[in-house]
Nucleic acid binder design. Structure first.
Lengths: 221, 221
DNA sequence: CAATAACGATAGTATTACTTTCAATTATGA
DNA sequence: TCATAATTGAAAGTAATACTATCGTTATTG
């Protein structure tokens, strides 16, 4: 089972070689350690005992690497969502599962092949908005670089519409929930005044589930 | 009437001189034009017909300038909020006004002294999360660089608690609303699949107001 | 076994993100 | 008003960043 990522994001598929896989796995570690701003291909090359030029053969910039990581993450999470909701007939139940899937805590040692899912989740929480908060967002969007995220939002929106066909804000509610979950997790760790959440994700899941259900029901005709 | 900004954010108060004011007003323009990533003090210096070193006498980095702009914005918005809610006794009404204040569209030519509020609002929407999504967030927080944002969240949280003292997620709901409003405005312009919002802010205001009210009421004992 | 793809090594460029020093100008208050 | 301090400008310098290019060696595969 392989997660698909838009081919225009990379120059050479990092899954096609050992070096490519190391770039991804060590890239995830290094971005977590020092943050995206301090992260450079030179530092990653040193860590890998390879050269800058070798890394540039895979990704034309660290921004593309970030796009790769976030796209991969959304691909993986979509797979997870589809799997977790496959046998559930109730739309409300599927929505609850979806929110649980998004908000679930991932331990720092959970692996999917060579990819550390826990660390990747942390990157998504603290860096992924930088993938679209850029002047190049419209070009990147045209190239389809955000397709994974959009698919995820679409899937959940459709559950919401099934729950209440008269509700006109399924996409807005979905993206509010996804971004909200990431923000709240970040705030819990760094700016606790901005949140009532702390500890594990169960309270967070509950809050957004309640919020979603009551918001959706309210607009029922 | 002067908006106060934490003095540790700047080296020299940009309000204390003509050059300082130009750094702020032209900085706002230039960040809007080319985005925070491409923005440099060298380019700003060229625009101002001054030198890099002169700008560095006011701010030690462009990140500090961003912190200044966002802090100023929250200071200004808090003033606005206090003013707009001063004579309203109903907590529900005050909450509605608060959401309106945050989501209001600001025209590109609305000025407050030398500061273009419309452009500053755009910076807050597309760049302000970068002020805290950094490895230095904890140090910056200790220095009080996010005090303005936190005060804003606190004020609105208190309205929510007044509305329903049994509701335990006032801060989470407030920060979800504020961040959500910014995200939705950004999505409306750049990633429209992720939102149901388009056009002016009235629908956005209505959505978050409804969401807030129904979420708060739900947890009433 | 010949071709080709992948990688490493080295070097080079323009730009960024600053810092430092010193001289000229401007404001201020004794 | 004159001395003093504060402000700005000009110039130069540094280390790091974000790449690009070339070339030789080593694997891989057909």
């Amino acid at each position: 089972m392989q997660i698909q990522v838009n081919e225009k994001i990379f120059l050479k598929d990092p899954n096609s070689s050992e070096l490519g896989k190391k770039i991804i796995s060590n890239g995830i570690e290094l971005i977590n350690e020092i943050g995206l701003e301090s992260f450079t291909f030179r530092k990653l090359a040193t860590k890998l005992e390879t050269t800058e030029s070798s890394i540039y053969r895979y990704f034309e910039s660290k921004h593309k690497l970030l796009l790769y990581l976030t796209s991969w993450y959304w691909g993986w999470l979509e797979y997870h969502l589809v799997f977790s909701t496959a046998n559930i007939s109730s739309a409300e139940e599927r929505l609850k599962v979806a929110i649980k899937v998004i908000s679930k805590d991932i331990p720092d040692n959970e692996m999917f092949g060579h990819i550390n899912l826990g660390l990747l989740n942390k990157i998504v929480i603290s860096e992924s908005s930088k993938a679209y908060l850029t002047k190049q967002v419209d070009d990147a969007n045209k190239e389809g670089f955000y397709a994974g995220y959009k698919r995820m939002v679409l899937r959940i929106s459709e559950i919401i519409k099934e729950l209440n066909p008269n509700f006109g804000f399924a996409s807005t509610l979905t993206s509010t929930i996804i971004e909200g979950i990431h923000d709240q997790k970040y705030f819990a760790e760094h700016l606790p005044t901005l949140t009532d959440i702390s500890g594990d994700s169960s309270v967070l899941t509950q809050f957004y589930t309640d919020m979603a259900i009551s918001t959706i029901q309210q607009n029922t005709k």
